[in-house]
């Protein structure tokens, strides 16, 4: 039990260290770049004198670099990311609504892709070597290879040709809703294509991971042992094979979250979905560095925290870690 505690403590310590490195890296990246974009921008005429004064006070732009660094860490941890050049309001007011919109798309897509991947990976592993396996593995590899943005565009072309579904944004522009249900319905319609795109590109890797992990497990002695007790194939799958095969899935899902986020960024840009990905894209074009700087920190920290959650979940499901 003590070792389990120290295992968790180690993971949390690593997460804190990672966040610290991310914040540090972010600070120096935007300050040591040619021309120090942050400093130049915060003195730009786009902001009111009052805003510049606030920034100078909070971020100490006239102080030595190391003092700016400590202020930056303090501000980052309190979600004070300065003022957006583009929107001229505090960055957090731009960033956090976008983060919510991203999650509205990302979470269902990931869950859907994992569930589909588990189902088809299981079929492929069980029928390994058959035409079914070949088809499922082949389509998974193909979907894994499709460039996210291009798949999105293909779906847009289809939708335009059939004029069936909206291809841009979260809601119909200028629409007012008489009640919540209509708004929700409109959101669902807008979500179909981006959700399909993201789910499809994520689905392939989960199928292959599930299949290969299950094939390894099905070769284990405890599967034959269960069979020797008189268990049916479906019982062995449910009680012995799947729990053991799903375990490595959890850590792989967490590790691949970085890739997942990459896919989400591209999907958001293609479908004009107002999430963090689109915000980053717009901020690059508008040279809105404070937003970029903050977006990077927030996305990276979210992934680090998701990994801590995965570690805890894993250790909860695997007695080898829980009781050692």
């Amino acid at each position: 039990m003590n070792e389990y505690r120290s295992y968790l403590a180690k993971r949390v310590a690593f997460a804190i260290l990672s966040i610290f490195i991310i914040v540090t890296f972010d600070f120096f990246l935007f300050r040591l770049m040619p021309g120090n974009p942050i400093e130049i921008l915060y003195r730009s005429p786009a902001l009111t004198p009052a805003q510049v004064a606030t920034l100078n006070r909070e971020f100490g732009l006239n102080l030595p670099l190391y003092q700016q660094y400590f202020l930056f860490i303090k501000n980052s941890l309190t979600a004070n990311y300065g003022i957006s050049i583009n929107y001229r309001i505090p960055v957090s007011q731009v960033l956090f609504p976008a983060l919510v919109n991203s999650l509205v798309l990302l979470v269902p897509a990931t869950v859907l892709a994992i569930l589909l991947g588990i189902v088809t990976g299981r079929i492929a592993a069980w029928r390994r070597g058959t035409a079914t396996d070949g088809f499922l593995t082949g389509t998974s590899m193909a979907l894994y290879s499709i460039p996210t943005f291009w798949l999105g565009e293909m779906l847009i072309l289809l939708a335009i040709a059939s004029s069936s579904l909206p291809v841009s944004g979260m809601y119909t522009l200028g629409q007012t809703y008489s009640n919540f249900i209509f708004q929700f319905f409109d959101l669902m319609r807008h979500m179909v294509l981006p959700l399909a795109t993201l789910t499809l590109v994520l689905y392939g890797q989960f199928t292959i991971i599930m299949r290969n992990s299950l094939i390894d497990v099905l070769d284990e002695d405890y599967i034959s042992f269960a069979r020797s007790k008189g268990a049916t194939d479906s019982y062995i799958m449910r009680r012995h094979a799947m729990p053991n095969a799903e375990l490595p899935m959890i850590s792989l899902i967490a590790v691949n979250l970085g890739l997942t986020v990459g896919g989400a960024v591209l999907t958001e840009v293609v479908f004009n979905w107002p999430g963090v990905g689109l915000l980053i894209y717009d901020s690059i074009n508008a040279r809105d560095y404070p937003v970029l700087q903050a977006a990077f920190i927030v996305v990276a920290i979210a992934i680090v925290l998701a990994n801590v959650v995965a570690d805890v979940l894993y250790s909860f499901l695997d007695p080898r870690i829980r009781y050692s």
């Binding site: 020797s228 729990p243 499901l317 695997d318 007695p319």
Partner: peptide, 16 residues
């Protein structure tokens, strides 16, 4: 009809 497996190391399901 029962079987005692050879090799005790991996015969048991580690999660149960």
């Amino acid at each position: 009809l029962s079987l005692v497996f050879q090799g005790a190391m991996n015969t048991l399901n580690p999660l149960m």
